[in-house]
């Protein structure tokens, strides 16, 4: 097992979750479950992260944010969908602003069900994800890892950057 799989760093993003799964993700990091003793560290920077924990479903606005964070993470990387909303859209599947599970925006490696997902299920999913991470590392080293293509149905990540630049310059103009 490589060093990466022994001490994976995670990044968490709330897509459009109700907070229920988010506080369970945080509960994993705090004394009762304390995954830090296994070397799992929560980071705020996508460029430092190996595992991407996403809670909640995709809507028109956050799909591009998800793709942005995903594309900033270095290979090899693993995406875990935490909670039933991230898996399929869950109870909000029928809402007008919900497009469905996060696999509509980025490729998902492990699905952790539950509403709200239990910390045990998250830890279990991370352990499964470590296996996937190791496989990907091996194929990256041998040059056979295929780069995932992000669905273009949602706004592409670089378009979002362009939008933000336009918005920032428009703001800069208004403030003089």
């Amino acid at each position: 097992m490589s060093a990466t799989a022994k001490s994976p760093w995670i990044i968490h993003y709330d897509a459009s979750s109700c907070n229920g799964c988010d506080i369970e993700v945080l509960a994993c990091l705090t004394p009762l479950y304390d995954v830090e003793r296994f070397g799992i560290i929560n980071t705020g920077n996508p460029k430092h992260a190996d595992i991407f924990l996403v809670t909640g479903s995709v809507n028109e606005r956050n799909g591009s944010v998800l793709q942005q964070i995903y594309s900033q993470m270095p290979e090899p990387k693993v995406v875990i969908a935490c909670g039933v909303c991230a898996c399929t859209g869950g109870i909000f599947r029928e809402c007008y602003n919900t497009l469905g599970g996060i696999d509509k925006a980025i490729p998902v490696d492990v699905y952790a069900p539950g509403c709200a997902v239990r910390p045990e299920a998250i830890i279990d999913a991370v352990v499964v994800g470590l296996g996937v991470l190791e496989q990907k590392r091996v194929s990256l080293a041998s040059g056979t890892l295929e780069e995932a293509s992000l669905p273009s149905r949602l706004t592409a990540a670089d378009k979002m950057v362009a939008d933000q630049t336009v918005r920032a310059s428009a703001l800069a103009e208004t403030i003089g």
């Binding site: 897509a15 979750s17 944010v65 029928e94 602003n97």
Partner: peptide, 15 residues
């Protein structure tokens, strides 16, 4: 500070 919202909007009142 100009806030921008809408990242978590699901539209559940319509449900």
């Amino acid at each position: 500070a100009i806030p921008q919202l809408g990242f978590v909007h699901r539209g559940l009142e319509k449900l």
